[in-house]
Nucleic acid binder design. Structure first.
Length: 423
RNA sequence: GCAGGGGUGGGUGAGUGGUUAAAACCGGCAGACUGUAAAUCUGUUGCCUGACGGCUACGUAGGUUCGAAUCCUACCCCCUGCACCA
């Protein structure tokens, strides 16, 4: 077994594209040039089940290295996940039960392997070594470090100074993560820049245990679609890797212009030369930014939904969002035309036929069809002119409306249903 | 254990007997505008009602009062300081 030695161009991509920092870079380069498969450690945090584009950044890096023949070691952090955030400082880290962790890990892995090659991945659960950890083991591990050392971590230091709580189990977190590195004998650990401290601690513990210290590769944290905060599920500014086609495309289109090139850099393989060209065009205003963004959205869709989906997503966007037309496919909503006032949709049907159509209560229809969560909300939407029936914008007074089979009901920009005759 | 502070709508947080479905900000939604689901502006943002109006809500359970998020009692939880520290 040997790994491919990267040429200069490949090496440059590995070291620069979507990388924030490498510690120690020289050592890492010589390891790559040695042509031996490296063990690339990556920790999976099953405290949340979904992977988004922010997570995809290091995963893509893993993939790149796998293609040279290196081995990914995926650590399922089933114990660290259970530490959660006992201080309650962060709503994003609830303490989880073993069952929740297991369920999360499963969906997480399914998504993980959308990017990373499963064949070249070794999956290890922390339980393998922490499952039988005794108090003696805990004491032995903790005795290697001092509080002062752990308080160097920025978020601990900040909280300590501000008299905010730091749970003891939280101090344990970096130690467990470091121990993982020893157990799997990792050569390189990847993570976001927020992992710097934890990964560096792994280097120390490995050295104490007589192993060669792992190299550290830190990738930048991706900014969310709001363009301000880092992408995270709890902030709702994320694009998930399992996001439905049109949502993925649309969310990508909603990012700020200033983030376009960064997204290309971190999430696509579009060559640097082309990115330089995009940058030039954006600065000079030579090209409408929306065109470049469509390319970006297309690239993301291509990765997660396949080549064939790209054209579909783009035409849907142009049609529904830009031109405000109806989408190709609209979910049907069945009502009875022959027996108004009866059957499962009797609430919807108000009065009998006029010209082949049927009259319905607008508000009830909107709610029944799932276009609004409550009558009050539906009423509000109607008052605000958000409801369109067959292309016509309804006014606040349109409490009753005539519909026929195939009439489309639209609420806001993105919610549609089409009336179908259930008879 | 002692002392002090606190638990309010999706979030932060104001409110200390009626004018409070509850300020403000953020977020969400909608309309207008736009190259966009961006930005901006405007509106809206508990539930039921066509509307008048009604109902439910401010940690939990009781109570005082014509009336309570606001006062009292008990309980639960959180934070801070002190004490304790093998």
């Amino acid at each position: 077994m040997s790994a491919i030695v990267p040429d200069d161009r490949q090496l440059d991509t590995i070291l620069r594209r979507g990388v924030a920092d490498i510690i120690v870079e020289d050592e890492f380069v010589s390891l790559l040039k040695a042509g031996k498969p490296l063990r690339l450690k990556f920790g999976l945090d099953p405290s949340a089940p979904d992977i988004h584009m922010g997570h995809a950044v290091p995963l893509r890096k893993l993939r790149q290295l796998q293609e040279l023949g290196h081995q990914v070691v995926l650590i399922v952090g089933d114990w660290t996940a259970r530490i959660g955030d006992p201080s309650g400082e962060s709503a994003t880290r609830p303490m989880l039960t073993a069952e929740q962790v297991l369920a999360n890990a499963e969906t997480y892995m399914a998504q993980f392997f959308k990017v990373v090659d499963r064949e070249k991945t070794e999956v290890r659960w922390q339980t393998e070594w922490f499952g039988n950890f005794s108090l003696e083991d805990v004491i032995r591990l903790t005795s290697r470090f001092t509080v002062a050392q752990l308080l160097k971590r920025d978020d601990f230091a900040t909280r300590f100074q501000a008299d905010r709580p730091i749970a003891i189990t939280e101090l344990l977190y970096p130690l467990l993560q470091a121990y993982d590195s020893v157990m799997v004998e990792s050569d390189v650990e990847l993570g976001g820049t927020d992992q710097r401290f934890n990964i560096l601690l792994g280097r120390e513990l490995q050295q104490m245990s007589g192993q060669r210290s792992q190299q550290v590769m830190l990738v930048p944290l991706l900014v969310g679609t709001d363009g301000v905060q880092k992408m995270s599920k709890s902030l709702g500014n994320y694009i998930g890797v399992t996001e439905p086609l049109n949502d993925m495309y649309g969310k990508a289109m909603s990012i700020a212009d200033s983030m376009i090139v960064t997204f290309f850099e971190l999430l696509t393989d579009v060559p640097d030369e082309e990115l330089a060209e995009f940058r030039r065009q954006l600065e000079s205003g030579a090209t409408n930014p929306i065109e470049i963004k469509k390319r970006l959205a297309g690239e993301l869709v291509r990765q997660f939904h396949g080549d064939r989906a790209v054209a579909d997503a783009q035409s849907h966007f142009e049609r529904v969002i830009q031109r405000k037309e109806e989408p190709d496919e609209v979910e049907g909503f069945a009502i009875s035309f022959s027996a108004p006032g009866e059957g499962p949709n009797s609430e919807v049907v108000a009065e009998g036929l006029s010209n082949g159509g049927v009259q319905v209560h607008t508000i009830r229809l909107v709610v029944k069809a799932g276009l609004a969560p409550s009558n009050s909300e539906a009423r509000r939407l109607l008052r605000q002119g958000a409801v369109r029936v067959g292309g016509r914008q309804l006014a606040a007074g349109d409490t009753v409306v005539t519909v026929m089979p195939e009439t489309t009901i639209r609420v806001g920009n993105r919610r549609f249903i089409r009336i179908v005759n259930e008879d």
